[in-house]
Simulated assay, not measured.
Amino acid sequence: MRLEGKTAIVTGAASGFGAGIARIFAREGAKVMVADLNAEAAEDIATEIGGVACCVDVSAGPEVAAMTGAAMDAWGRIDILVNNAGITHMPTPLEEVSEEEFDRVLAVNAKSVYLTARHIVPLMKAAGGGAILNIASTAGLSPRPRLNWYNASKGWMITATKTMAVELAPDRIRVNALCPVAGETPLLASFMGEDTPETRAKFLSTIPIGRFSTPDDMGEAAAFLCSDAASMVTGVAMEVDGGRCI
């Protein structure tokens, strides 16, 4: 019960890493808002864990404002924010990624962090503290070719995490990031270009532990970083990657 009595918004929580984080937060005692663009899937996860569902496009300011308002209406405070929602473009030469794809990747992966901060940080300051966790990627630390603009968006997120941590520390708001290697999520095929036994074997050969990351891996690490046990930890970009970045 590391998060007993805490309230948490997890974006992109209807599937993949976000669902894993939501499930483990609930197991650890938190009240969880399952925020996702997929309303039906968000409802399913929220029903499973006894949480609250919210349909939201995290790249749209008015929708983030509505999500924040819904959480405040439900709980009266927001203790934890997990910026997990993210997308990628397909593996493509950097000059061939369309402007529309570029804009969408940066809107979901980067602008969303700005928008949630704009609406939720003032509430955390007023409450005397909080924890923000940004789900970045090993792609922001050890980028691979043909995912250039996705890599860049996750590098942006890591830098944003560190500068947010420094600025918000006097307000008792901790800000950290997780950097997972690819896992069994809806984005896996996009990262690899195609999901075949051959591409999986090639990708797994770059991970010393020899497996993909799982939603539970992410949930356990997230629960620690957002708990009081990590009260001295801020500005960290923790690799949850089986040794991929070594």
Results as ranks from 00 to 15, higher is better:
residue 196 T to I: 10
residue 49 I to D: 02
residue 165 A to G: 09
residue 12 G to M: 08
residue 216 D to P: 02
residue 167 E to N: 13
residue 94 L to R: 05
residue 27 R to D: 12
residue 114 Y to P: 01
residue 233 V to T: 15
residue 108 V to E: 04
residue 14 A to M: 09
residue 144 R to Q: 13
residue 116 T to E: 10
residue 1 M to Q: 09
residue 151 N to P: 08
residue 15 S to W: 03
residue 168 L to C: 12
residue 37 L to N: 10
residue 27 R to V: 12
residue 77 R to N: 14
residue 162 K to I: 11
residue 182 A to E: 10
residue 158 I to N: 03
residue 45 I to H: 03
residue 7 T to N: 07
residue 160 A to D: 10
residue 11 T to A: 08
residue 17 F to L: 14
residue 69 G to M: 00
residue 162 K to V: 07
residue 80 I to K: 01
residue 212 F to I: 03
residue 86 G to H: 10
residue 119 H to A: 15
residue 218 M to V: 05
residue 49 I to E: 02
residue 170 P to I: 13
residue 183 G to K: 01
residue 194 E to F: 00
residue 231 S to K: 14
residue 154 K to V: 10
residue 33 M to Y: 03
residue 51 G to M: 06
residue 99 E to T: 12
residue 9 I to P: 04
residue 224 F to D: 01
residue 244 R to G: 00
residue 149 W to G: 00
residue 100 E to F: 04
residue 124 M to H: 08
residue 51 G to S: 08
residue 98 S to L: 10
residue 50 G to F: 08
residue 205 S to C: 02
residue 210 G to L: 13
residue 163 T to R: 14
residue 125 K to Y: 05
residue 26 A to V: 09
residue 187 L to H: 04
residue 131 A to R: 12
residue 13 A to Y: 06
residue 206 T to D: 09
residue 31 K to R: 15
residue 150 Y to R: 01
residue 237 A to K: 05
residue 146 R to L: 15
residue 117 A to C: 15
residue 124 M to A: 03
residue 220 E to Q: 12
residue 208 P to S: 07
residue 141 L to T: 13
residue 36 D to A: 03
residue 17 F to W: 11
residue 28 E to N: 02
residue 151 N to E: 01
residue 5 G to K: 11
residue 62 P to A: 01
residue 31 K to H: 13
residue 57 D to L: 05
residue 69 G to A: 13
residue 102 F to I: 14
residue 221 A to G: 09
residue 41 A to E: 12
residue 163 T to C: 10
residue 177 A to M: 10
residue 238 M to L: 15
residue 173 I to E: 03
residue 30 A to M: 08
residue 244 R to V: 02
residue 244 R to L: 15
residue 71 A to Q: 04
residue 147 L to T: 13
residue 126 A to C: 04
residue 19 A to N: 07
residue 193 G to L: 05
residue 73 D to S: 13
residue 117 A to V: 00
residue 202 K to E: 15
residue 28 E to A: 01
residue 34 V to S: 07
residue 9 I to D: 03
residue 15 S to V: 08
residue 152 A to F: 07
residue 207 I to R: 01
